[in-house]
């Protein structure tokens, strides 16, 4: 188990210290530390069931850690959950797309809920501008995924939590995603993402979770 590193928690950016997560009776992981500085990226890897999604949901505040703490710029996120929600984007496995709304309406709604106004930029970043007036029921799985990812660009937020964002994307869309991540980091934002395939993300730290939940090297 790595030694506690309080300095990482008080550093600028997003950090977690001695995190443990329990799902039902099972301890998914324990004693987990991570730190993502501004402009940094953290890639979560590991086999199915190793707790990548659990860790991302925990980072988002959807679940409470069994033990340990999460901090943003040194301040525990539990102190102000509303501020944490306002600063993060979480894209889970599901796309949160309604079949009867159009592409532009969907993105406009999700961006608007965060006060974002960059709907046009989001559509263009993920090549959805031509589909703006399509009802979402006509979209393919990959297009729906792109629409979910377009939320990232449509309402800027300093922290992105992406659960296997590359799933279902073609090569072109994957390049769009990587470009969006690079732009986010260039602007000083932090990105945490889980993946099963190696993604070319420059200077990313890797956190490898094992099937039994212990952190590998």
């Amino acid at each position: 188990m790595p030694a506690p590193s309080p300095s990482a928690v008080s550093a600028p950016g997003f950090a977690g210290h001695a995190l443990a997560c329990r799902r039902g009776e099972r301890l998914v992981f324990a004693g987990l530390d991570f730190a993502v500085p501004p402009g940094g990226a953290l890639v979560l890897t590991g086999p199915n069931g190793s707790g990548k999604s659990s860790l991302l949901r925990l980072m988002a505040g959807l679940t409470r850690p069994e033990a340990g703490m999460l901090a943003w710029n040194g301040a525990p996120i539990g102190d102000d959950p509303a501020a944490h929600r306002a600063r993060l984007h979480f894209i889970g496995h599901q796309d949160a797309v309604k079949p009867v709304l159009t592409v532009a309406e969907t993105l406009g709604f999700w961006a608007g809920m965060r006060g974002g106004t960059e709907v046009r930029a989001g559509l263009e970043r993920f090549r959805l501008a031509a589909l703006a007036d399509w009802p979402c029921r006509l979209l393919s799985a990959g297009q729906r995924r792109r629409l979910a990812l377009a939320r990232l660009v449509a309402s800027p937020a300093p922290l992105w939590l992406l659960d296997e964002p590359a799933n279902g994307l073609d090569a072109e869309a994957l390049a769009d995603l990587l470009a969006a991540i690079a732009a986010q980091r260039a602007a000083g934002g932090a990105v945490v993402l889980s993946t099963h395939t190696a993604l070319p993300i420059e200077g990313a730290r890797e956190l490898s979770l094992t099937a039994f939940g212990r952190r590998a090297a």
């Binding site: 505040g61 959807l62 509303a82 993060l88 496995h93 796309d95 309604k98 809920m113």
Partner: peptide, 18 residues
């Protein structure tokens, strides 16, 4: 139910609006 099934509820729960 519908929001829960398609992931919208999860996304809504993480919006700044309580």
């Amino acid at each position: 139910q519908a929001d829960w099934e398609d992931g919208s509820l999860e996304a809504l729960a993480l919006m700044p609006l309580p």
